[in-house]
Write a protein that binds this DNA or RNA. Sequence first.
DNA 1: AACGTGGTCAACCGCGAATGA
DNA 2: TTCATTCGCGGTTGACCACGT
Length: 335
Amino acid sequence: MGRAPCCDKATVKKGPWSPEEDAMLKNYIEEHGTGGNWIALPHKIGLKRCGKSCRLRWLNYLRPNIKHGDFTPEEDSIICSLYISIGSRYRLQTQLPTPSLFTTRLSLIHDHANHYVLNMARWSIIAAQLPGRTDNDVKNYWNTKLKKRLLGRRKDRDTHHRQSATPAMSEMSTENMNDGERALSASAMERIQLCMQLQELQNPLGAHHNPLVWPGTLSSNSFNSNSSNVTVAEQGQSSSMNEPLMDAQMEGVAMDGLGSPSSAENSNMISMEAELEELLYGEGNRGKAGVVDGGVQQGDVDWWSYDQGKSPVGSWDFTPEANAVFQDYTSVYDI
DNA sequence: AACGTGGTCAACCGCGAATGA
DNA sequence: TTCATTCGCGGTTGACCACGT
């Protein structure tokens, strides 16, 4: 028994959209809205298209204020930093589960991170930071350009640093992987590799003793296991997968007692931002994405800066809806 | 000119989550 | 509570294009 198709594949048209189809869809939605039902929409318009196809076409192409064309260095920086910071599939729950219901979906996050995070989609988060860009755009751009640019440089550096690699990093070879490590998605490994690369740049001699700072991840004093109703023990065994590495990496930006980054951590964030630029644009091109003389220009890459009054999470600039959900959740569960 | 190769990006597919009856 | 339907996402595909041989 397979899954029921969302539409009649025999009668719907597939492939590129014609200008006529675009016009029909655009005119209808601008006049009547989507009606809250994408599946029914093509029938109303008289389009021989799947509802999902209509939705995709509208969101990625026809919607107003969509920005096409080259990404700016600022956008590059945001995408890369957020990609590294964010877990693989964190979706914002419209109804956050009770702590007792943190099961399969979130346990991976919890086990590895040792604290809870909002489960929110990666590409949507990133796209939300880039006005006019769609998640599909960002995803394509990452997969076809940015990843290659970063990993290409990483490869070069790997060769260069191979002889001075730390033991902890050598253990990351697939030969030495345990089951948990093998279970990691390629993207997760990729992120780890990228972070190790950045970490190595920051501290070539003692990377494994220096917890990496992840700009933009959740602060350790929000959603941590100490202040929530569920502990690591209650969640079952903690993953064996590179616990020190992952725990440190997923810990997020260390906060001082007031919930703002300490000066040392802030310095680390700035440093990482600069290193990221070095990976993106190469030696001698720092400052291209807003980092000048080791500092961060206000308004350029301040998406990860902490604003206590704006977000209880203390890292992302959440939408009011997301903030409301989060605040409801924290008040109900006394987090 | 013809062919091969690689890059780009719009679009599709399948799945899990959300929603409502 | 259950089940059917719809939504929204990540991963993938394939058409198209540019470039090199």
